[in-house]
Design a protein around this nucleic acid. Structure first.
Length: 755
DNA sequence: CCTACGACTTAGTAGTTGATCT
DNA sequence: AGATCAACTACTAAGTCGTAGG
């Protein structure tokens, strides 16, 4: 049963349909299906993947969080952890706090590339070497989260029905959990277990409390939860002026941290706030989810800035862990987090020149692949039949990466969620269905499910079958001879800098270009944007970018559906009127009147009911509104009889509908003519078509996230080109932040640019 | 060589804000 | 004017990939 609990994140997600999956691999079926070559059996199998000594692998099924008992070949590596600060001697010079710092450097040292407006247009003069990231760098350090403030004494955690006096440190941790009480995380057993363990540890370290706490189930956090909720409410109910004031103060305080000076030029900093402590929200079935993410202090922080830059003052009573001057990296500060002992960086914002340059390079690299992709595809098709197992695996993996946009799939350790990419696919992740259908079903990055039933090249199918051959069993690697580095080394031969991820970028942008090419230049800008988004969606589907369906989605859909039905009813009603004006019409245009029977009597009755209810409501509101206004103006109120009068009108209508339901003959208005009715039908049809489109769009989008591909995969110059070519304001496709991030693209291409 | 890990990109979601509806 | 919802931003987790260092 705990398994199903771990599935929470998954169950919210409906599966993505793969029917409209469209990939551009023009070559996919171009070379006719080749006959089975008989030497599959004779495959040369040298040099097994070295990591082969692996444990029997994790349990096979998706979403199963159970890990096999830990066994590691790398158990010896534990030693390396504490000794970290002693590598890379060259780069680091520890600057003792208080060291007198010379005057600052490099202010507006005018360089070429600065536009007239003083904005640095780096894209107008590119340099190739990016091993040196900056000449001078000044910044003001980072913002720390506020210290913990104990709760009021009446707000307590309860244990076994009794209030507990927790030391502040433990109370803080309990509070982290309490605040999340209603989330899925809090219901996840792994999360609870990890949280509770860390909570008890902190409790013990901070001196314990008046109760002996041993049982998670006896902890009651509701009082704390309610308190937090009330606080939230309070905050929400502040007056606009109060909110504004608080915001302004925050703004002012953060001001110095928001920007830095890079080579004397002002640039935005991205995440200048140090991550606050909390409970680790690992995604999917992460073994460490719920663990306490500890507070970060200045002593944990390593600053990186120019030699001559002023070292920002650490918070009073504290000192920086270290100060470095490494201009081969682009981070401003870093610290080590305690969950996986990995590093967190404070970096430049997405709109910075450094980020922009590397973004630009990324897309140029992907474009360069255009010149090689044909040969690569030709080669891997041949290599699919290579005698060497190693080469077959390389070719097959390349195929999967190219055609289905899989990620490389590096090896993961046992204390992370069990997710895979191409090279780490296992036996149980694909099902083969002859003659050439493959069903992929696995959890990829972020534990997002990748489910697709697809037809593949026959030789690929055969190879996959070989890769699954006994003695392999569930848990075994499909690609046991290769890993991402083998693949990437292979790719280098075709093009310097070519790696697995470049294929994703290339195919995404190529797909976008192709989709945009299909859009006719007609209609309103809004209509064109809809088409643009559809193209964007194709890319998102290719990359399997998903999102959880929003809470209100179902009801919102229902609403639109109701509206749609009502319009249908109206249309049918109009047609019925037409028949009353000219009964011979039905014979003349049978097709036109075919749909008269589409609505059932029950449907019609509900529509009537809803309509009537809405009318009543409308008048009630009108009455109230009108009287409120009059009361305010000290005017005479509308009499109750007025409301009654209105309601009587509605009742009339109701009667009329009832009659109509019986007879099937709506009352034809006096001034109606065939032409007028026909025109009205036409209009309705237009509206219905529109709404249907809207509905489809909404439904299609409910599970697909467009933003990820727009931000990371689609060359922004494509979007700019589209806007210029089709006369669509750029604001319609890029938000303000994206416009800033992609300024280089916006200012550098015209309507003829191609990916 | 191989592996661990540092540095960077890519990813979905929580929280906030602004627009729209009622 | 308040509620509701969609859009956008902020946040931080989770990938990829190259390379330092054994």
């Amino acid at each position: 049963m705990s398994d199903s609990d771990d599935d929470i994140a998954l169950s919210k997600r409906a599966r993505v349909k793969d029917e409209d999956f469209s990939v551009d691999v023009s070559s996919q079926n171009s070379r006719g299906v080749t006959a089975a070559d008989s030497d599959d059996e004779a495959l040369v199998t040298v040099s097994r993947k070295t990591k082969k000594s692996k444990a029997p692998k994790r349990a096979a099924t998706n979403g199963d969080s159970k890990q096999p008992p830990k066994k590691k070949l790398k158990s010896s590596s534990t030693t390396s952890k504490k000794t970290a600060p002693s590598k890379s001697q060259v780069k680091k010079e520890v600057k003792k706090e208080g060291t007198p710092t010379p005057a600052r450097e490099g202010t507006p040292k005018e360089e070429d590339g600065d536009g007239d407006d003083g904005i640095y247009k780096w894209w107008e003069n590119q340099q190739d070497d990016d091993s040196i990231k900056w000449e001078t760098l000044e910044h003001n350090g980072v913002i720390f989260p506020p210290e913990y403030e104990p709760l009021p004494t009446h707000v307590k955690m309860f244990y076994d029905g009794k209030p507990v006096n927790l030391p502040p440190a433990a109370e803080e941790v309990a509070g982290f959990y309490a605040a999340m009480l209603e989330t899925d995380h809090a219901k996840n057993p792994t999360f609870q277990k990890n949280f509770f363990k860390d909570f008890l540890k902190v409790l013990e370290e901070s001196g314990g409390c008046n109760a002996s706490i041993t049982d998670f189930d006896k902890c009651d956090f509701t009082k704390m939860f309610n308190y937090f909720e009330a606080k939230k409410e309070e905050k929400k109910n502040m007056t606009a002026a109060e909110k504004k004031k608080i915001k302004a103060e925050k703004e002012k305080f953060e001001e110095p941290y928001k920007t830095c000076l890079l080579n004397g030029r002002k640039e935005q900093v991205g995440n200048f706030r140090v991550e606050p402590p909390g409970l680790f929200r690992g995604r999917g079935a992460h073994p460490k989810t719920g663990k306490l993410k500890r507070r970060v202090y200045p002593e944990d922080i390593i600053l990186n800035l120019g030699k001559d830059a002023k070292i920002p003052d650490p918070p009073p009573g504290h000192s920086w862990g270290e100060v470095r001057h490494d201009n081969t990296v682009s981070w401003l500060a870093m610290w080590r987090e305690n969950i996986s002992n990995s590093v967190k960086y404070v970096r430049f914002a997405a709109n910075s020149s450094l980020k922009g340059m590397s973004d630009y390079k990324k897309f140029e690299k992907a474009r360069e692949l255009k010149n090689h992709i044909e040969r690569i595809r030709k080669d891997y098709r041949v290599m699919l039949k290579d005698q060497l197992m190693l080469n077959r695996q390389i070719a097959t993996a390349t195929y999967l990466i190219d055609v289905f946009a899989l990620r490389a799939g590096g090896e993961k350790s046992d204390d992370e969620a069990d997710t895979v990419g191409c090279c780490s696919l296992r036996f149980e992740h694909i099902t083969l269905s002859p003659p050439n259908t493959v069903i992929f079903d696995f959890l990829g990055k972020d534990s997002i499910r990748f489910y697709q039933e697809v037809e593949v090249d026959l030789q690929v199918f055969k190879n996959l079958k070989i890769f699954k051959r006994p003695p392999k069993v569930p848990g075994d690697d499909l690609f046991d001879r290769i890993d991402p580095s083998v693949l990437n080394k292979h790719f280098q031969k075709y093009m310097p800098g070519l790696t697995a991820k470049v294929f994703r970028t290339y195919n995404a942008s190529k797909t976008m270009q192709d989709q945009l090419d299909l859009i006719p230049n007609e209609g309103t800008p809004n209509e064109k944007v809809v088409k643009f988004n559809a193209a964007n969606r194709t890319v998102a589907i290719l990359c399997n970018h998903q999102r959880t369906v929003s809470k209100g989605h179902e009801t919102a859909m229902q609403k639109i559906n109701d509206k749609l039905k009502e319009m249908m009813w109206q249309k049918i009603r109009l047609k019925k009127m037409m028949l009353q004006l000219d009964s011979k019409l039905k014979k003349k245009k049978p097709k036109y009147f075919e749909e008269l029977e589409d609505l059932t009597r029950e449907d019609e009755a509900t529509i009537h009911k809803n309509l009537i209810a809405r009318e009543h409501e409308k008048y009630e509101k009108k009455f109230k509104r009108e009287n409120d206004k009059r009361a305010e103006n000290k005017e005479e109120l509308l009499p109750k009889s007025q409301l009654k009068e209105w309601n009587n009108k509605v009742k009339e209508l109701e009667k009329q509908y009832a009659k109509e339901l019986k007879s099937g003959k709506p009352v034809v208005p006096d001034n109606a003519t065939l032409e007028k009715l026909e025109a009205q039908v036409e209009k309705l049809e237009q509206r219905i078509a529109n709404t249907m489109l809207q509905m489809k769009d909404k439904e299609d989008n409910s599970q697909v996230a467009l933003s990820t591909s727009k931000i990371n995969y689609i060359d922004p110059r494509l979007s700019v080109m589209f806007c210029k070519k089709y006369d669509v304001p750029i604001e319609k496709v890029f938000t303000k932040t994206l416009r800033e991030k992609f300024k280089w693209a916006i200012e550098s291409v015209d309507e003829n640019w191609r990916f």
